Computed example of a mutant assay.
Amino acid sequence: MPDQASPAPVSTAIPPHRGGLPDPRHFDPVIFPGAEAGEVWPPTHFNFHAPWMHEAGLGFERDASGGIAVVRSFAHLRLLVDIETAHQLFDLAPGSRDFRLLRLIPAALRCVERIIPGDPMPGPLLDEEEEVPEEHHLYAATTAMVERLAGQAGEEGQALAEAMRRVPPGPGMFEAAVARCITRFGFPMATVAPLARRLQRLANAHARVLATAAAQPDYAAMEKVVLRTRQPLGADRGWVGGGLLTRAMDGLLPQISRPRRASTAILAAAEEAMRRPLPLEAPTRLILEQDGYRDRLLDISVFWRRLSAAWMTVDPDTTDRREIEALARNTLRRLSLTSLYRAPDEP
């Protein structure tokens, strides 16, 4: 009998992600400092173990200045707390499970308005697909488009912009504006309705950009933790790898701001594109451009969300140096993905 052909070898290579990037969910997985073997982190809920974390009325919000406000129910008291020292207020030992859970609060508050102990973890922190943009993002995108319509569009576009200024904001504002153009201004539906549908697609595309930008990790907080972590390493003589770790951290500091600067530049380019003089009656190219900006922001976010949250769980004085070294390696590998941070006008 003829020899049977040997089966083709199974490839174990990680498939490339968008733009030739590696798959972010398999790229150098991040382990949270203090996580036990086999522990899934982040958990699905903010289920603190300490009973005093479940007192009635306790919650967390973003203060107007961007800090974390601890909200108590008695006497409408609001305490503005530095999240890096908040564990002292709640008597949570550094490195404990509740400590690590508390340090996830800032990342969660970039996705929701308020966190109460027991609340579910926001989807982006669990690597779930992002939801439809919230209404305020859609309203902001629509407002930018209305301003452009009023100054650049033809007669139908200007009438539609005028109508949109007089209807309540929300997902149904385009339909309401079309009805107003027909009933109040006398435009035929065959002219106004197709224009409104195209512009609604554009508003949705820009709203997705705004929502993805708003959900970016707190890069500034991560940079602050990296800087604070570097400071005690030079004085730590009790660990044999201290010199290597110190040099690794010294290499991180000059470039750790790269994801923040890149995401800021991409958002600015997306907003500038909405102001350029292009014919909004045929916005297909602009829609594709906005989708591209959103994809760029999403790529950066997916690569950095888990790592930035892991850095927030570091306590420079007590975290195991080997775990800090692992985070430094994760960070350097992500910073080496140069195409992730290319300028918005680069192909």
Results as ranks from 00 to 15, higher is better:
residue 249 M to L: 10
residue 340 L to N: 01
residue 343 A to L: 12
residue 100 R to Q: 06
residue 112 V to W: 02
residue 320 D to T: 01
residue 278 L to Y: 05
residue 124 P to I: 03
residue 14 I to P: 00
residue 227 L to I: 08
residue 329 R to S: 12
residue 76 H to M: 10
residue 308 S to E: 15
residue 238 G to D: 05
residue 142 T to C: 13
residue 173 M to K: 09
residue 241 G to E: 06
residue 30 V to C: 11
residue 191 T to I: 04
residue 29 P to E: 04
residue 8 A to F: 09
residue 45 H to R: 15
residue 204 N to M: 13
residue 320 D to E: 15
residue 30 V to F: 10
residue 228 R to F: 01
residue 57 G to F: 12
residue 329 R to W: 14
residue 50 A to W: 01
residue 129 E to L: 10
residue 68 I to L: 12
residue 318 T to D: 11
residue 225 V to Q: 09
residue 226 V to R: 04
residue 29 P to Q: 03
residue 227 L to M: 06
residue 221 A to S: 12
residue 39 E to N: 11
residue 78 R to V: 15
residue 154 G to F: 02
residue 284 T to L: 13
residue 75 A to D: 13
residue 340 L to C: 10
residue 246 T to C: 13
residue 323 E to G: 07
residue 250 D to N: 14
residue 24 P to K: 05
residue 43 P to S: 11
residue 134 E to V: 02
residue 92 L to I: 09
residue 341 Y to R: 08
residue 106 P to Y: 03
residue 116 I to R: 15
residue 258 R to N: 07
residue 170 G to I: 03
residue 81 V to M: 07
residue 133 P to K: 10
residue 2 P to I: 09
residue 122 P to K: 02
residue 229 T to Y: 01
residue 203 A to E: 04
residue 180 R to G: 06
residue 64 A to D: 14
residue 145 M to D: 01
residue 55 E to N: 08
residue 29 P to G: 12
residue 30 V to E: 01
residue 315 D to Y: 07
residue 167 V to Y: 03
residue 30 V to K: 08
residue 305 R to N: 08
residue 36 E to Q: 15
residue 292 G to W: 03
residue 104 L to F: 05
residue 123 G to M: 06
residue 160 L to T: 04
residue 76 H to N: 14
residue 125 L to E: 02
residue 142 T to D: 13
residue 196 A to N: 07
residue 139 Y to W: 11
residue 266 I to V: 15
residue 337 L to F: 06
residue 86 A to S: 13
residue 318 T to C: 01
residue 11 S to Q: 00
residue 343 A to I: 12
residue 153 A to S: 15
residue 213 A to F: 13
residue 30 V to T: 13
residue 238 G to L: 03
residue 270 A to G: 00
residue 24 P to G: 07
residue 58 L to Y: 12
residue 342 R to D: 11
residue 320 D to H: 14
residue 208 R to G: 14
residue 146 V to M: 11
residue 123 G to R: 03
residue 22 P to W: 03
residue 262 A to W: 08
residue 54 H to N: 13
residue 15 P to D: 06
residue 281 E to I: 00
residue 276 R to E: 14
residue 59 G to E: 11
residue 142 T to E: 14
residue 307 L to Y: 07
residue 182 I to R: 07
residue 77 L to I: 14
residue 102 L to F: 07
residue 142 T to Q: 08
residue 304 W to P: 00
residue 28 D to Y: 08
residue 171 P to W: 04
residue 202 L to K: 04
residue 298 L to N: 13
residue 42 P to S: 08
residue 323 E to I: 02
residue 8 A to H: 07
residue 136 H to P: 05
residue 35 A to F: 01
residue 325 E to L: 09
residue 334 R to P: 09
residue 174 F to K: 10
residue 202 L to Q: 02
residue 6 S to N: 06
residue 101 L to M: 10
residue 63 D to N: 11
residue 249 M to P: 04
residue 152 Q to S: 10
